[in-house]
Amino acid sequence: MIQADAEILSVRRDGAYYHMSFAAPGIADGFRPGHFVAIAVDDAHILRRAFSIRSASTKAGGALQIIVSPKGPGTQWLVRRRAGDIINVIAPLGQPFRLPTEPVPCVLVGGGYGVAPLFELANQLRARGCGVEIIVGAGDAARLHGVVEARRVSDAVHVTTDDGSAGEQGRVTDPLRRILAEGRHPAVYACGPMAMLQAVSEVSAEFGAVAQCAVEESMACGVGVCMTCVLPVIGDDGVTRMVRSCTEGPVFFGDRVRWSDVGTVPADTLGSPEARDD
C-alpha cells in the first residue's frame, strides 16, 4: 500500500463513464484484481473516492487504470482533470479476489462499471488454465461497459440489459442460471450494485457454486480507520459482525454477507443493541 502524488496520463470518455489512467510508481506491482484505489479530490470535498482498479501496467514506472462514473461532485471534479494534472492516490487497498488452485471453469459477472476489475481477473484465471465466461449487465445500453474488452479476455460473453436496448433483455442472473445449470462451474466472481451481488450470491448458492463478490459501500477513508463502510458479515465462527468493506473486503464470499440486512444491524450481530440488553 503506497500513498503517492500521481500524474494523470489520460482521461477518456467511454459511454456513460470515463476511463482514467495515471502514473503509479511502485503501486502496479502489488496489484491483484479486486484491489481498489482511494483518490483525494478537490479541497471542498475532504473524503477520498474509492475505485476498483481496472488494470495495472508495470511498464514505464507503472500505471493504473480506473473507470469513473461521474455521479457526484467529487467524481465530476475528477473526470475534469487533464493529462499532466496531479492527484493523490493510495493503493493497492483491500482484499483481492482469491483465485482457484485448480484450473476450473469460472463465471464472472459485472453490473455497469462494476465490470472494471473483471478483465484482469479473467486474464489471470485464463493464465491458470481456467475457462472464463463473462456476463456483462446494465440498466440500458448506455451504461454497459467493456463488452468488447470482455470478448477479448474470455471464452464467451453474455450481455443483458434491463430494457433490452443491448443484448438479452433481463438480469445478469438469467444467463448465470443457465450457465450454472450445466453443472460444471464451481466459481463465480461478481462486482456491481448490492442488489445484483445478492442475486448472484443466491443463484450461485442454489447451484453449489462459490461466489466471491466485490462490494461497493460508501467509504470516508478507504484505509480502515473511519468505520463507515461496514456491512453485516458472518465470520468463520458463525458470528455476525459489522465488518469494514475497505480492509476485510471489498471482496467477500457471497454466502457470508447478510445481503438482506445490509443497511441494518441484525439483532444477533456481535455487540448489537439487542445483544447488549441481555
Binding site: A44, I46, L47, E217, A220, C226, T228, M242, V262, L270
Partner: peptide, 26 residues
C-alpha cells in the same frame, strides 16, 4: 463490551466536513 455501532449510512459528506453516526463501534 463489544459494540456493533449504528446501521449504515454512517457518513455524509458536507461542505468542508462530514457528518458521522458510527455509534461507537468497537
Amino acid at each position: 463490551r463489544p459494540r456493533s455501532g449504528r446501521p449504515t449510512p454512517r457518513m455524509v459528506e458536507t461542505p468542508s466536513g462530514m457528518l458521522n453516526s458510527i455509534g461507537l463501534q468497537g
